[in-house]
Design a protein around this nucleic acid. Sequence first.
DNA 1: CATGAATGAGGGTTCATTCAT
DNA 2: AATGAATGAACCCTCATTCAT
Lengths: 197, 197, 197, 197
Amino acid sequence: MGQRGRKKGASGEQSRGVLLSIATEEFALRGYHETKVSSIVEKAGVTQPTFYLYFENKDALFQELVQLFRTRLSEYTEKSRLEPGIAKTAIRQKIAEGLMPFFQFFIEEPHLASIGFLIAPQAAEIKDQLADQIRANLISEQQAGYFRKDLNMGVVADSIVGMMERFIATQKKRSFKEPELLADEVVRLFLYGIAEP
Amino acid sequence: MGQRGRKKGASGEQSRGVLLSIATEEFALRGYHETKVSSIVEKAGVTQPTFYLYFENKDALFQELVQLFRTRLSEYTEKSRLEPGIAKTAIRQKIAEGLMPFFQFFIEEPHLASIGFLIAPQAAEIKDQLADQIRANLISEQQAGYFRKDLNMGVVADSIVGMMERFIATQKKRSFKEPELLADEVVRLFLYGIAEP
Amino acid sequence: MGQRGRKKGASGEQSRGVLLSIATEEFALRGYHETKVSSIVEKAGVTQPTFYLYFENKDALFQELVQLFRTRLSEYTEKSRLEPGIAKTAIRQKIAEGLMPFFQFFIEEPHLASIGFLIAPQAAEIKDQLADQIRANLISEQQAGYFRKDLNMGVVADSIVGMMERFIATQKKRSFKEPELLADEVVRLFLYGIAEP
Amino acid sequence: MGQRGRKKGASGEQSRGVLLSIATEEFALRGYHETKVSSIVEKAGVTQPTFYLYFENKDALFQELVQLFRTRLSEYTEKSRLEPGIAKTAIRQKIAEGLMPFFQFFIEEPHLASIGFLIAPQAAEIKDQLADQIRANLISEQQAGYFRKDLNMGVVADSIVGMMERFIATQKKRSFKEPELLADEVVRLFLYGIAEP
DNA sequence: CATGAATGAGGGTTCATTCAT
DNA sequence: AATGAATGAACCCTCATTCAT
């Protein structure tokens, strides 16, 4: 009752969801070409035609995941920018707070992150974009007097994005602590450098 | 005369070289699957069977390139380790000198670097290894008193490798200066951080 | 209705069956290498990928046929061993009855027999095995006093298997009679020899 | 001197001979398709073009071997027919003497025999022909009163040829004695049969 | 909503054979 | 007499995708 009626309609969305989630994992773990439509549907327990009931084709599904990654990334990026000038928190904590959402996202959605940062053909472009944003932020903070003026913020941004990529790529084998600790570690590194003061 | 002698024996190696170099570019620019044997040989001006005269198969060729990358990377890594302890040169310059070979390599062989750092399935492993080495170096220098003791050198190493990866990935669009300048920039970043002193 | 039901489920098995039967004939008539997947599917009225829907590859199909031959051969060999010791039937008829199943098999499945006895790389091994069995049988009957003791039963078994092979190989052009008659002919030959008594 | 002059001309025939002999072995052991021109020349220590200096193509070489087999077989068959009526030797020995040359040939040239009897596409035809000859001989001797009249000599001939084929095919693993002994064994089998007299 | 069955299109690889030297 | 280098012609196989039910 109701249940049954819904079941019909829901089962569709359900199948779609299963396919989507399996595909995410497969793409992340094996890459685009090594992930066959046939194996996705097999693991999902449906047949190949069913796949095309929910996705135009393999590439469309993949792009959907990439798009999903970009959306989520933006959402989390928003959080990074929340506290504009108000923040009386020390610069160190402020930056750590800005980094946290990324780490959280990468930890919560490792497969999606892998797709967007490592697997997708647009990965380069995605990272470029992110680096650009970060650079813009850094520059404005640099001009606000928080950072040294003699550093090329493009290089800094690239290093940060590169670090993120490494974080995503090595997440499985990383025994590493809580995102908070990691964020703080990273912030201290980028803020003060490794040199003995 | 020497001309003639060389011509004969060389023609084979020459074809191989052409194929190798075209393949390097193709793999770097399009990825493994998008690079067809048919298009490699076409650009090389030979027919498909010729390809198999010089390489066991497509994958063997690719692996040869990956191996070549690893070898070159090792060679350059050697250079990074030259001067042992004595070094009265400022730590800053010392590190810059250690970084330089990598940048030089990446600049001289951008396609090979791209293959080893971005395209190869083993890319993750390769970068992990490199990060491990760098971390080991950093730790020993840390213990020698050059670096702060409160930093996790694993994170530092990952950040450096990530930065390298970004450097390779963005090289084409990078208007950036000489490797010397870049190396110095990077060293200053990692040594002293971005915080206003 | 049963019609419809069968049609659906059966169509796949049907295609497989058609391919199997065409392949049997082609392999038997042309040999392994001269039989192309392309020609099998063409005669079956399907496209090449369909072939791989039912068989892992060309060789797997071939091996399946060889295995089928072996199985059938075993089944028929069983029949040869029926009546154990008591047998008051004349030795001559007893042996004829033991031979009959083979001839019947070879006549009913000439192509399969051809594959197992002539085409398969394992043909030698298959015949060796059969010869071994026959020899064992002959020896036990020899020791039971039915046959002369001064004959090497290995040679006899080889001769019988060789005769079978010739029978299979020449079946097409053989105008020869019923299997019963042939069996009797063969038995008389091997039992009593050709010498004028 | 002389030696040197001959060497040149001889070296050609020599290469040809080497190729021929290696090809014989390879064809016999691996079959036609599994024997690659490339592997023949490799084992012969020459290059592929050299192969075509001496043979029109792979098939021509193979046919040459088949032809050689047929020729040799005929030569040996001649020996079988030498003593026409004269022979006062007992029928048993006479037949053994007729069989001997075949066994000798098969033993002396096992690879060639394998090619002609097992590998060649014409193997069936070759054996048919041989069976025909043997049948003709048998029939004439049958009519001369040496053999029972109630036996189909076609079947007898096929059995003999089949036995020969088995002999060739199993020669490697056969521990068996001298050709004389084998011939005698076979003759006794076919003459008197296996039944307890 | 779902499937059994089938296919279009293309890719990698092999092999006998030849050309120029 | 011989070779280094190259190729024409096929063949096997895979995969994303669709049709009819």
